[in-house]
């Protein structure tokens, strides 16, 4: 099913703040097997000039993807989520996410395309801290196609 082209450029309201906790960062670092102390030890983080422990680079995806959920689930867009796989992912950082951050995400639909029977959706998530300063931008490409390809 072709997606509604009029959605290109549409932005969704900022999400409610997500508060980044030290223990959630630790849980993520342990899950990916990364023992870098900058993720778990506030003193190690301070030694590198960070005010608190920082999060691994891809940690923020859980926050931006949850925000993209309101786009993906928008019934007017017509994306078949049961066929969606993750195509591309990119991040551009102004600074690392760190413990104590209260982050909001503003999602914008950058592109909707139908190519070779696949529906393709590009969503940009701009992540800001409580002071309104930019932290990171995440670009997520979702492809709705046969389930034998891609890896979610």
């Amino acid at each position: 099913m072709a997606l509604d082209q009029s959605f290109v450029g549409r932005s969704y309201p900022p999400t409610e703040p997500y508060e980044v906790g030290r223990e959630k960062i630790r849980e993520f670092a342990v899950a990916v097997g990364d023992a870098n102390p900058v993720y778990t030890d506030p003193e190690a983080a301070k030694a590198l000039g960070h005010p608190d422990v920082i999060a691994p680079p891809t940690f923020v995806f859980a926050i931006t993807f949850a925000a993209a959920g309101q786009v993906v689930a928008d019934p007017q867009l017509g994306l078949d989520y049961s066929r969606v796989v993750h195509g591309d992912q990119k991040f551009a950082y102004t600074r690392p996410v760190r413990a104590g951050d209260r982050l909001t995400v503003t999602s914008t639909i950058e592109a909707v395309k139908t190519m070779a029977g696949n529906d393709i959706l590009d969503v940009r998530g701009e992540v800001h801290d409580e002071a309104g300063e930019h932290v990171v931008t995440a670009w997520t490409k979702l492809v709705a196609r046969g389930a034998e390809e891609g890896q979610g």
Binding site: D34, N36, I54, T58, G87, D88, F91, R95, P96
Partner: peptide, 18 residues
């Protein structure tokens, strides 16, 4: 990359295709 630089904050952009 982050083990090479020591400080993960050195990463300013990162992208992949699955």
């Amino acid at each position: 990359v982050t083990d090479w630089t020591g400080d993960p904050a050195a990463v300013v952009e990162y992208g992949v295709r699955f």
